[in-house]
Nucleic acid binder design. Sequence first.
DNA 1: ACCATAATTCTAGTTATATCGAAATAATGG
DNA 2: CCATTATTTCGATATAACTAGAATTATGGT
Lengths: 107, 107
Amino acid sequence: MVVLDEILIEEAAQAFAAMGSEARLLVLATLVKAGREGLAVGDIQARCAMPASTLSHHLRFLTSAGLIEQEKQGRTVINRAAYDRLEALAGYILKECCADQQRGACK
Amino acid sequence: MVVLDEILIEEAAQAFAAMGSEARLLVLATLVKAGREGLAVGDIQARCAMPASTLSHHLRFLTSAGLIEQEKQGRTVINRAAYDRLEALAGYILKECCADQQRGACK
DNA sequence: ACCATAATTCTAGTTATATCGAAATAATGG
DNA sequence: CCATTATTTCGATATAACTAGAATTATGGT
């Protein structure tokens, strides 16, 4: 069993930092809800109600943290949640739970 | 079935922000590994190798985000990972996955 | 070529965070 | 009480983030 989604601590920290702004978390949640089809920047702007430049800034932040993926289609940019990455991050938090204890797992 | 660990978006953002620093994520991971017994501030300092004042700052950040809990025992302060909270946060990310789509869940 | 639309980049002001030494506080033992 | 240990608070500085208007680039339609 090969682990494909091993995450370095610095990558994890960057990803969590990207989720650590209410505005960005809202954008990310909007994309997670939207599903695999994703949303154009304008659609996100309509749903999240923020200035285009602010949104663009946050989208770049989320992209560089690997939480979303962007694909250019004509003059629109489609944004999709990076579900695999998000799952890996969800697992990261408690990954090594109680590793220092000899016997017994957590809980 | 009552959901006890409902999290507001602003709380989630604060929690993720707290995990969004490499130094703090290291501290948190150290506590997660340590298990329910927790660690004194001095023990964390020894394992994470950072100045006491810096560590104290990060611990306050983590505490106010609800990621760790502190208990004073004599002159030492025991720090424990808030496992319930961490689990809730892990679930938060993909909680409403594909909610906007009529049919079919994600994947 | 021209114009409307989609999105990003530029620029700047404001606020928040990171770091850490020095000093202060708090609790214990002698 | 005094010394010691454990931790926090203070203060200062450096860096980074948030926000958003204005300007810019890129594409598609007419």
